[in-house]
Design a protein around this nucleic acid. Structure first.
Length: 465
RNA sequence: GUCCCCAUCGUCUAGCCUGGUCCAGGACACCGGCCUUUCACGCCGGCAACACCGGUUCAAAUCCGGUUGGGGACGCCA
């Protein structure tokens, strides 16, 4: 087989969402698996709704996910002469014709048909008029009235449409801008795309595109329609399901590989395996194991995966990734070595980088003001002597080894006739301001003796009031 | 409405092509328990599905047909 060439072709009318990233990923994986080429094309023929800021955001999203594309970015808006060239060919061949029907009329006829329960389709009014190109004429495709258009879908299997179900679609608008179905064919043809992997909401477009390839005398690429990603209510994923732009997941503290792993496993599988490195995904990916049924996006599982990768990522790497999330809390320029130690204590306890940053707060900032509930329960006058005693013992410790600290806490519990938890909690609140934190014997060595003693004395001050 | 696609635990899925090894396996979530200085992690255990009806066959989650259900598409949007 010739070299595999796939493409991702978003339209810059909005942010890149999960669904788009899903298709982009499958195209990328397929191309990389076959050591082929992955192209990126911006479908900006809708001049009304396309915006440059969305193109920028889409590129940033793909880059963040690590989905790198080959060659230059292609923009449909810069290929107008090419489309006109192909329109001429179709017109010459008698496979297309000009149409001067009023858009408003067409819309009215469409609504009327729909209201009568009929399939809304263009009636071919201008088909035999022999109109010339003019300022108000669009160009339509002359769809064969009979016959069947079919293809072997690489995911769904054989699919067939009766040509009579298809109407004469507009190829070129009156303003000279091509429509989606036409531009896509010209682009995929000229970019030599071999496999079109896209959402199965494009299935109805496929016979139309196939017919255009045929009219052009070209061999069409292979088509693979992947199942759609649905929201909790089983409808196409959209904002109301909380489907956020890809970059919003970055803001919420997800690791890019979490998204990659999650998206890969939605609609595709490799036996029972859930966790995949990028290399494994590239190695194992195959259209053969892409399922046909739509999948529902499950944020719980995404969180679980992120928690998993938070545990797996080496602390120094994670520390670097955490820095941007610390800044909003007022923690800037943290010492890398210190931060890496901090991260080690938080990896198994948080599910996002945002949570981790929040949990890391006390390592850098004054634990005061204390959590009111925690303080009223544990920073009580009767715990004063206990805290004083703890301070004394820590002061006396030659070093802050975990084993020694554990021993000290147990000894103290025994000698003061308390349960260990009743020794630990007051100290925890004194050091962190909260009742929930990493283990005390992990925290103390990181904060260091001086800081620990300072925080205990601050707590003693507090409870005297 | 018409056309098209789809159908295994609540969710993601394995198995289906090449029927028997499946009274259906894994994961998330959930529920117990263990561990434990808090919270997590981890470990152990549990709950839970082949949409329905027919057919083919010695045998069907697996093949065929229909029904039902869900989704998608019907633009001078992509």
């Amino acid at each position: 087989m010739a070299q595999v060439r796939t493409r991702f072709s978003p339209s810059p009318t909005g942010s890149l969402h999960l669904g788009g990233a899903h298709t982009a990923l499958f195209n990328w994986l397929f191309a990389r698996h076959h050591r082929g080429v992955f192209l990126l094309r911006i479908e900006d023929t809708d001049q009304e709704r396309s915006e440059e800021r969305f193109t920028t955001e889409i590129l940033e999203s793909l880059t963040w996910l690590g989905l790198d594309w080959d060659g230059d970015l292609v923009r449909q808006s810069q290929r107008l002469p090419l489309y006109h060239d192909y329109i001429e060919r179709l017109l010459q061949a008698g496979a297309a014709y000009c149409c001067d029907c009023e858009p408003a009329d067409l819309e009215a006829r469409r609504q009327a048909a729909l209201a009568q329960g009929k399939k809304p389709r263009y009636d071919g009014a201008c088909r035999e008029k022999g109109l010339e190109r003019g300022p108000n004429t669009a160009v339509r495709f002359k769809t064969p009235p009979t016959g069947v258009t079919h293809w072997q879908d690489q995911i769904k299997g054989p699919i067939a449409f009766d040509n009579q179900e298809l109407d004469d679609l507009v190829l070129l608008r009156a303003d000279g801008v091509p429509t989606y179905n036409f531009a896509v064919v010209v682009d995929d043809l000229t970019m030599a795309v071999t496999h079109i992997i896209r959402g199965d909401d494009h299935i109805p477009n496929t016979p139309r595109q196939l017919l255009i390839y045929a009219a052009l005398g070209a061999t069409p690429p292979l088509f693979a329609h992947m199942p759609l990603m649905l929201g909790k209510d089983r409808a196409k994923l959209s904002k109301r399901h909380g489907a956020l732009p890809i970059l919003a997941y970055r803001e919420r503290g997800f690791l890019p590989h979490t998204l990659i792993n999650y998206l890969a496993r939605l609609g595709w599988s490799h036996g029972d395996q859930e966790i995949f490195s990028l290399e494994e995904l590239v190695r194992y990916f195959s259209l053969k194991h892409v399922g046909k049924a739509p999948g529902i996006f499950d944020e719980e599982k995404l969180l679980w995966l992120n928690g998993h990768y938070l545990k797996e990522t080496p602390a120094p790497d994670l520390a670097r990734a955490l820095i941007p999330y610390l800044a909003p809390l007022g923690i800037t320029d943290p010492d890398p070595a210190y931060l890496a130690r901090v991260v080690t204590t938080l990896q198994a306890r948080t599910k996002t980088l945002v949570e981790m940053a929040d949990a890391a707060r006390f390592y850098f900032l004054d634990p005061r003001p204390y959590d009111p509930q925690a303080a009223s329960k544990f920073l009580t006058p009767e715990n004063g002597p206990l805290l004083t005693e703890i301070a004394g013992r820590i002061q006396a410790l030659p070093d802050l080894e975990e084993a020694g600290l554990t021993q000290m806490l147990h000894d103290l519990a025994a000698s003061t006739n308390r349960k260990l938890v009743n020794v630990a909690q007051p100290l925890r609140v004194a050091l962190t301001g909260k009742t929930i934190s990493p283990g005390l014997t992990e925290i103390i060595p990181i904060l260091g003796k001086a800081e620990v003693l300072k925080r205990i004395s601050q707590a003693l001050n507090f409870l005297k009031k």
